[in-house]
Computed example of a mutant assay.
Amino acid sequence: MEMNQRKMSEKRTAFVVVFTFIVMVAELGVGLYSHSMALTADGVHMGSHVLVLGLNWGAYVLVRRLQKKGNDHYDGDKILSLSAWTSGIFLLLMAFFIIGEAVERLRGPHVDIATGQALAVAAVGLVANGICASALHHHHADLNSHAAYLHILSDLLTELGVIIGLVCAMLWDITFIDAAVALIAACVVIRWAWKLLHQTAVALITKQ
Rank of each mutant, 00 (worst) to 15 (best):
G70L: 08
S134R: 14
G125W: 00
Y60C: 03
A179F: 01
V61H: 09
G88L: 13
I89N: 13
V50S: 00
M94G: 10
V23E: 08
I163K: 09
A84I: 11
P109N: 03
D42P: 01
D178R: 02
M46V: 11
G161P: 01
C132A: 15
F96T: 00
D72E: 13
G108C: 07
I113K: 05
E2T: 14
S34K: 13
R6L: 14
T115E: 08
K7S: 04
D142L: 03
L119G: 12
I152Q: 06
Y33Q: 04
H73G: 04
A41G: 06
T20R: 06
M94Y: 12
A114V: 06
A95E: 01
W85H: 07
G31V: 12
G47E: 13
A133E: 08
L80K: 15
F97C: 07
L126Q: 10
G130C: 08
V124N: 06
V44H: 11
G125I: 02
I79Q: 09
T175K: 14
A102Q: 02
R65T: 07
Q67G: 13
I174N: 07
A179D: 00
L39Y: 09
A114D: 15
L160F: 07
E2A: 05
S87P: 04
E2M: 11
S81K: 08
N144K: 03
H198P: 00
D173P: 03
V30G: 02
L82N: 06
H45S: 09
L39D: 04
A148V: 12
T20A: 14
L91A: 07
V25K: 02
V162M: 10
G70R: 13
V50Y: 09
A133L: 15
I184V: 13
L82W: 08
H35T: 08
A84T: 12
F19I: 04
V162A: 09
V23Q: 06
L157R: 04
K195E: 07
I79K: 05
Y74E: 08
H137K: 08
G108R: 07
M3P: 00
A203Q: 12
L80A: 04
L80Y: 04
A135H: 05
L126A: 10
K207M: 09
T115R: 06
L55T: 11
T13Q: 06
M94D: 07
A179M: 10
L166I: 04
W85N: 01
S36R: 06
W57N: 01
L160D: 03
H139R: 13
S36I: 14
L91W: 03
T40R: 03
L119P: 09
A135E: 15
L150F: 09
C168D: 12
I79R: 06
A141R: 10
S9Y: 14
A120L: 14
Y149G: 00
L51T: 11
I190G: 00
Q117A: 05
S81C: 04
I113S: 01
I184D: 01
L82K: 10
F96Q: 01
L153P: 00
C187A: 15
W57D: 02
A14Q: 12
L28K: 12
A95C: 07
H138R: 15
T175A: 05
I163G: 04
T20D: 10
G161D: 01
L53Q: 11
G125Y: 01
T40H: 06
L66S: 01
T200I: 13
H73W: 11
